[in-house]
């Protein structure tokens, strides 16, 4: 129960700050712009190849609209998630409100989990806000719903992982900007790590936060990918827990 109370408070708090609304609007605007340009490109290209017997079948909705839409959304998530996670503990440390949670009959694990779930709820709202894009496809086409569901799963797993890492960064400082820069840099570094890898089996690729997403966007959910993100999240939640416990005993 305590987890839910804390999550609810955190979810509400994100909406009570200008940053929360700015992140939400910025995210929807950016993904919307990408969607619109992709859409117009698709319409023009389809018109061009309509009489080409080889070109027309290649212009699938999945390949040219769904895949790039989620691909773009994931990159935008990389940029905006640190702006959500930066608040989580840095603000509590700055305004000394963490003391309230630490002296209430709730465990550190409940605090960490509650805050995480609250912020995850905000990510859910962000995801819902983009639903118009894939939904509009169903008006005139029959896109593979598996790819759409996979896209959203990829978004939630990637941004959930970034969120957990950002939360740890936020627990190290009472300055939100420091938390933002820390978590953004770490996220970006882990994302581009795959570029250094030589082939899909290189350790850089395996470790990278960005290289486990592609199959999701094609509608294929691989257990190993899900496990990667879930263990990533679990690791950073645990690290945040340890960090908070250590502040008590230092």
């Amino acid at each position: 129960m305590n987890v839910l109370h804390i999550a609810r408070r955190e979810f509400g708090a994100t909406f009570s700050t200008a940053v929360g609304w700015l992140v939400l609007c910025g995210f929807l605007l950016l993904t919307g712009v990408f969607w619109f340009s992709q859409f117009t490109y698709y319409v023009t290209e389809s018109a061009n190849v309509v009489f080409n017997p080889y070109g027309a079948p290649m212009m699938t909705v999945a390949e040219h609209l769904v895949l790039p839409f989620f691909g773009n959304t994931l990159v935008v998530a990389l940029m905006v998630v640190p702006a959500i996670s930066m608040r989580l503990f840095a603000e509590e440390l700055r305004s000394r409100t963490l003391e309230l949670l630490l002296t209430s009959p709730v465990s550190t694990a409940e605090i960490v989990l509650g805050k995480y779930l609250g912020a995850l709820g905000f990510l859910g709202v962000m995801a819902l806000g983009t639903a118009y894009a894939p939904a509009s496809l169903y008006l005139w086409a029959t896109p593979d719903w598996g790819a759409v569901a996979g896209g959203y799963l990829a978004f939630l797993l990637l941004s959930g992982a970034l969120l957990a890492m950002g939360m740890l960064c936020s627990a190290f400082t009472n300055n939100q900007i420091v938390a933002l820069i820390l978590s953004f840099s770490a996220g970006l570094a882990l994302y581009v790590l795959a570029w250094l890898g030589d082939g899909p089996d290189a350790w850089q690729t395996q470790l990278s936060i960005g290289s486990h997403l592609e199959d999701f966007l094609r509608g294929a959910v691989r257990l190993s990918d899900v496990v990667y993100y879930l263990s990533f999240i679990a690791f950073f939640l645990f690290a945040t827990h340890q960090r908070l416990e250590s502040t008590r005993w230092r």
Partner: peptide
């Protein structure tokens, strides 16, 4: 903590509520 009420030196208030 269940039976304890604590007011810290700086009241821990969520000012957005």
């Amino acid at each position: 903590k269940q039976m304890l009420g604590y007011l810290p030196e700086f009241p821990p208030l969520y000012v957005d509520m």
